[in-house]
């Protein structure tokens, strides 16, 4: 780990001012990913801005519209918020399957959304991969069982967050702060694929940080489900995941969001799947049709073809559950 300077401001404006100063900064929420990334020299910041003392970032306000979730809210506290869980059961589905209880006790919403990829080539000090400034993605001809089947262009990481697909399914906005003010963008636009920039996973530029997630209050008849598949039933990242949020009215789907996890370098929203559901009554056949639409463009590699089948199953199951057709 490189030597670094460290500050723990207690108000957001000081933090943003420090981030705006010259030099390489990293913001730290729970630190569970940052510290490990520094130990393996993936991150080598000269300065760490520890956000844990900033009350404002830990605010969770479920009273208004939108519901506001500070990036410093720990996953355990998010899960403990009954109003939030009642409004958005899909967030309970997702937050409950992040990592382990120990990590959820420390890890934050912002950290979960901004964590670096879990690709084993990216994480290994022995590979200088494309994302780390090297010249090739080792997954293409290598061990790619956990890699992308969609949206991999040059680099085949999958986005590791469980919260992101669920929040995008809810139509969340990302509020980004910097010394010069804040801006709000759809969370799905917050994440960027390798076709935009292969060295980062989101739009943040130096001096910026994620400060809050805004989630619109649910519409009548809205129901969301997040399903995650993984080898181990705890402490494992998704091999595939599906977040489905439907608004049902008189047996018809009036609005649908389908977002996939574990399959692409970004949380992967599927307009094609959503279009299948829109205006239809939900049946197993319709769910299967939507799932097939979601992977129409999938291009598996040598070891990850199973993901094409697996994610379709999760999409179908999530659609049927979200439509109130139970089962698993």
């Amino acid at each position: 780990m490189r030597a670094f300077t460290y500050a723990a401001p207690t108000d957001l404006s000081s933090a943003l001012a420090r981030l705006g100063a010259p030099g390489t900064h990293a913001v730290m929420g729970g630190g569970t990913d940052l510290v490990n990334s520094m130990k393996s020299y993936i991150e080598t910041p000269a300065d760490i801005v520890d956000l844990q003392g900033i009350q404002e970032l830990q605010a969770l306000d479920t009273s208004g519209d939108p519901v506001q979730i500070g990036v410093g809210v720990k996953l355990v506290d998010m899960l403990a918020s009954q109003p939030l869980m009642q409004l958005f059961p899909i967030l309970q589905d997702a937050a409950n399957v992040v990592a382990t209880p120990q990590l959820r006790n420390v890890g934050t919403v912002g950290g979960n959304l901004c964590q670096r990829p879990r690709c084993w080539y990216f994480r290994s000090v022995d590979f200088n991969c494309l994302r780390k400034g090297g010249t090739e993605c080792y997954a293409i001809l290598g061990q790619n069982q956990y890699h992308a089947i969609l949206g991999g262009l040059g680099c085949f990481i999958v986005h590791p967050s469980d919260l992101a697909p669920a929040l995008i399914g809810l139509g969340a906005q990302a509020v980004i702060g910097s010394a010069s003010g804040t801006r709000s963008i759809p969370l799905e636009s917050f994440f960027i694929g390798p076709e935009v920039d292969v060295h980062r996973e989101n739009v943040l530029v130096p001096g910026e940080m994620l400060v809050r997630i805004d989630v619109p209050r649910p519409a009548a008849g809205q129901r969301g489900v997040f399903l995650k598949s993984r080898g181990r039933q705890t402490w494992d990242f998704a091999t595939t995941a599906a977040a489905v949020s439907l608004v049902m009215s008189a047996g018809t789907c009036t609005s649908a969001r389908v977002v996939l996890g574990g399959v692409a370098p970004v949380p992967w929203r599927s307009p094609d799947a959503e279009a299948v559901l829109q205006g239809r009554s939900i049946t197993p056949a319709v769910a299967a049709q939507a799932a097939a639409a979601a992977v129409k463009l999938a291009r598996p590699m040598q070891y990850n073809a199973y993901k094409v089948d697996q994610v379709q199953v999760l999409i179908q199951r999530a659609i049927l559950q979200a439509a109130g057709q139970g089962g698993s």
């Binding site: 382990t100 879990r118 084993w120 080539y121 994480r123 290994s124 022995d126 590979f127 080792y138 001809l141 290598g142 061990q143 080898g231 181990r232 039933q233 705890t234 402490w235 494992d236 990242f237």
Partner: peptide, 22 residues
């Protein structure tokens, strides 16, 4: 990774021991 001869399971997230839940 057989092309480079480098093991890629070099942490306990990628090298998966059984947990109590499993």
């Amino acid at each position: 990774d057989s092309r480079t001869g480098i093991p890629v399971t070099t942490n306990l997230v990628d090298y998966k021991i059984e947990t109590a839940v499993d």
